[in-house]
Design a binder for these strands. Structure first.
Length: 275
DNA sequence: AAGAAGTCCTGGGCGC
DNA sequence: TGCGCCCAGGACTTCT
């Protein structure tokens, strides 16, 4: 489940390998993954394009190309982007292969075919709606305590749904939402609008601390996640609540509760996290 | 209009 | 052993 720390780790491992290389040819094995444009245009418009930089916005990876267009990839649940030398046998569920200059291949692998791939002209609004609607980067300067407080105040949903809403904050998914709420000692069903100034400050701190800690650990490999070099992350060893329903709370020892909240499996401590 | 629910997809874990 | 069932969930669409 690549979330912000995993996507950032992919970006950091990928950029030194592919920046400056040219996309010679693209092989499409499962075209359903490409949302726009059509497959023939996708192949033609990518051919000969040089990758200038690899950026990240929320959970989206942005490959800046020299023809005023950007290759946009969202890994969703099980997507993997792996760089390897040509000739290495492709893994199962390989849907796209970008043949780059000097014998390197960039491969998009996705067991569940949930991933999203776009090739969008720069500066044209409406091309990738989800990307344009993203809220602030939680590790960016614009994400201040007052920014968070103001956004919480305006929402009628609970704080778990708030954290998962990409238009409020970009990049948080189910794993880090649960870890952040545990760190901030907030019950996932607490209404966002009822979070006071002190709690909002704690939540702000927890968001930034947990995401930074996870990036330092190169992300969480709970099921499928690997970076562009094929390596797993290390944050799964530091998870306090995610995937630990029914086990003792690491803080107080009481059993952690698992419950469906905001349509997602949520784990929390009924003692440490209060409404 | 905002929020909730349904949809996509496959592998793994479970019960019988 | 093997089959069927359910679960995992991010963003999109559809419904209320």
């Amino acid at each position: 489940m690549p979330e912000l720390p995993e996507v950032e780790t992919v970006r950091r491992t990928l950029e030194p390998l592919v920046a400056g290389r040219t996309i010679r040819r693209t092989d499409i094995y499962y075209g359903g993954i490409i949302k726009a444009p059509d497959q023939d245009s996708f192949r033609e418009r990518l051919a000969g394009q040089r990758i200038q930089a690899v950026e990240r916005r929320g959970k989206y990876l942005l490959f800046r190309l020299d023809g005023k267009q950007t290759l946009i990839i969202h890994l969703r649940m099980t997507g993997q982007l792996v760089a390897c030398e040509a000739g290495v046998p492709p893994a199962a569920h390989t849907h796209l292969v970008f043949h780059l200059s000097d014998g390197l291949e960039l491969r998009f692998v996705d067991i569940r075919k949930f991933g999203l791939v776009y090739l969008a002209p720069d500066g044209v609004p409406g091309a990738v709606k989800g990307l344009e609607a993203l809220g602030p980067e939680p590790l960016g300067q614009e994400f201040t305590i007052s920014c968070l407080t103001e956004r919480l105040r305006r929402k009628k949903c609970n704080v778990k749904a708030f954290l998962l809403d990409q238009t409020q904050i970009a990049g948080i998914g189910n794993i880090y939402a649960d870890e952040i709420l545990f760190a901030a000692r907030l019950h996932p069903e607490k209404p966002a609008a009822e979070i006071g100034p002190a709690e909002a400050a704690d939540l702000h701190q927890a968001i930034r601390a947990k995401l930074r800690e996870a990036i330092d650990c190169r992300g969480t490999s709970f099921r499928n996640y690997i970076d562009a070099r094929g390596e797993k992350g290390g944050f799964q060893h530091r998870l306090a609540v995610y995937g630990r329903g029914g086990k003792p709370c690491p803080r107080c020892g009481r059993l952690l509760v698992k419950k469906k909240i905001a349509g997602r499996g949520s784990v929390f401590c009924p003692d440490c996290q209060r409404l």
